[in-house]
Design a protein around this nucleic acid. Structure first.
Ligand code: FES
Ligand code: FES
Lengths: 147, 147
DNA sequence: TTCAAAGTTGACAAAAATAGTCTGCTATGA
DNA sequence: TCATAGCAGACTATTTTTGTCAACTTTGAA
């Protein structure tokens, strides 16, 4: 079980926007350089994020992207849901395999528990939390250096 | 984020063995029929499970597989670790991308939290738990039917 | 007004992972 | 001794992931 690059890149890109929140928009190009992600690939991801209403685009010269809500109101789960899709462990649709008899399915409850656990974690961490963590990390590192 | 068929099939197969624990060994063929999984594919999975020491094989006529420990001592996490590999969110090795500067990495802490959460859930649920859940489900269903 | 920066869209494709199949083999209990 | 069942590993097909690219649209700024 792993996160694809869509999720990983997406969170990193959104983190950049969160760091920059309140200032001028960030262009795809800028973000792609900062996080070392393909510009073209990022465009795809931002297409999804925009459709989902997580970011707003500002066209024209000096345009770019901004968060459509404050970082405190966007969770990592919101981003991952858009880019990775909701966690689908099993189909639960096909009526032919024996897994469709939900009442008797031994594993269904298990998948639900795993999914809920991940959702609980990802939806409880906001971009603001990440920015705060990041800033305290930097302060601690500075202190360690004796600055 | 999703579980591959390896993990899903593997847990289902191990659940069958747990249901059958204490009785005669179950052959790949039997399991493949009960859970409707390709016989050849299951062989692959059981190869891994055997090497990991989760199951024992009994060769020859009337042979098959049995759990090598009681169901209460095998967690779902044990199975998933073998079949899906441990949860690798990011590489954290390549020194060239900016993600390698772990002290400054904004997302690393996040991936760790997600991973730990999944591990905590999967490693706390044993095959015995699943069997118990399954049995209570059946009882409840029977009562609802007025039996 | 013109131009260049920047977003938008959708097609395309390489690469990797997943899922599944098959063949020939070995071991062993009945 | 032979049918049953596991063992090993090559092989293939399919899907998903991970990008790339080109043509087009919008719009702020000079
Ligand atoms: S009913 Fe969907 S996992 Fe069993
Ligand atoms: S250092 Fe591995 S995720 Fe950043």
């Amino acid at each position: 079980m792993k996160l694809s690059t869509r999720g990983r890149y997406g969170v990193k890109a959104m983190f950049e926007l969160a760091l920059n929140y309140g200032s001028e928009p960030l262009s795809i190009k800028t973000i792609s350089e900062k996080q070392n992600i393909s510009e073209y690939y990022l465009e795809q991801l931002f297409g999804s994020l925009r459709k989902a209403g997580l970011v707003k685009s500002i066209r024209g010269a000096q345009g770019g992207y901004v968060l459509s809500r404050p970082p405190s109101e966007i969770t990592v789960g919101d981003i991952l849901d858009v880019l990775e899709g909701p966690i689908e462990i099993s189909e639960c649709i096909d009526d032919e395999d024996n897994c469709s008899r939900i009442e008797y399915c031994a594993t269904r409850l298990l998948w639900i528990k795993i999914r809920d656990s991940v959702n609980q974690v990802t939806h409880s961490i906001t971009l603001e939390d990440m920015v705060n963590d990041y800033k305290s990390m930097n302060i601690i590192t500075s202190i360690k250096r004796g600055e």
